[in-house]
Simulated scan of single mutants.
Amino acid sequence: MSLENPLWGAPRLHGELLKLGFRLSQSTVSKYMIPRKGRPAQSWITFLRNHASAIAAIDMLTVRTFAFECLYAFVVLSHDRRRILRIEVTTHPTALWLASQVAQVLGAGSGVRVLVRDNDGAYGAAFRDQVRALGLDDRPTRPGSPWQNGHVERLIGSIRRECLDHQIIFNAAHLRRVLGAYAAYYNDDRTHLALAKDAPETRAVEAHGRIVSRRVLGGLHRRYFRIRSK
């Protein structure tokens, strides 16, 4: 019990033991509990779950065009409802450009307090200064630990598998349109296991009417809904 609950002191442990029918003194619990310095700290996963409503994560993915030009897509994801807050495209992701993107989406009123990111060299001094100016708690992941930014890493995998692997991108404007359409589908239509099979922007249950569908990304995906018969 002491190992599993590193934040609990002797009174809390003693109370739990009393509820389990053990009759012993609190001083005995204090004597045998593992010292705080020997107990594991809160895990990274626990931290993310406890602060989901105030966490945003960012990352970048590279995309090759038809002419082999390298483009960069910058993604901002809310942990709370897995909503894509922003996708923007550039050919040169400088620290100033990244700082501008963060300021536009995570400024005052966003509700975000913690920013999770990797250690990409593009997040330079100008970017870090902007994050501090916004009052965000900057949380870079440990080197070689992509799982610490798992939500956005999974999103990038979905973008590739469900969109970009089936598209030929011609230029930055084309990529921006494609990713914009995918983001709208992802937020409004696509159901997520982590959200009890709801969409980030909650979808109402439609029980009556004729079922029809709307094509998304040229028919790569579809949104199904009901319409009232006349």
Rank of each mutant, 00 (worst) to 15 (best):
W8F: 07
S78G: 06
P146W: 05
K31L: 15
L17V: 03
F127I: 01
A184I: 04
F66D: 13
F74R: 06
A172I: 01
T90F: 04
R222W: 11
K197Y: 15
A56Y: 02
R128T: 13
R83L: 13
S145H: 15
A103M: 01
F127H: 07
I55G: 01
H51R: 10
R223A: 11
A103W: 00
T202D: 00
T91E: 13
L48A: 10
R142S: 08
R177D: 12
V105Y: 00
A194S: 15
V114R: 13
A52K: 13
L18Q: 15
V178M: 09
R160D: 09
P35V: 00
T191I: 15
S27N: 11
V205S: 10
V75K: 02
L134E: 08
S145T: 11
R86C: 14
R214F: 06
F22C: 12
R117I: 14
R154P: 03
V152H: 02
V75T: 14
H92F: 05
V131M: 11
L85P: 00
H166R: 11
S110Y: 06
Q130M: 14
C163D: 02
T91Q: 10
V178A: 04
S2T: 15
V105N: 03
R203L: 15
R228L: 15
V76E: 04
M33G: 06
R226T: 06
N149E: 02
G180N: 05
D198H: 09
L24H: 07
I34Q: 09
V76L: 10
A103P: 00
I227C: 08
L220S: 02
G9R: 02
G219D: 10
F66K: 14
K197C: 13
R228N: 15
I34A: 04
R223I: 08
A199Y: 03
N119A: 09
L71I: 05
L13C: 10
R23A: 13
A54R: 09
P146T: 08
R12V: 10
I211M: 11
N149S: 04
L61K: 02
P11Y: 07
L3A: 08
F225Q: 07
P6K: 10
S110L: 08
T91G: 10
A41K: 10
G135K: 01
R83C: 06
H166N: 04
R160V: 04
H166S: 09
R81L: 12
R128H: 07
G109K: 10
H192T: 08
T202M: 08
R203E: 13
R142N: 04
S53M: 13
S213F: 08
A196N: 14
V212Q: 08
E16T: 08
Y32F: 14
H79W: 13
R160E: 12
T46I: 07
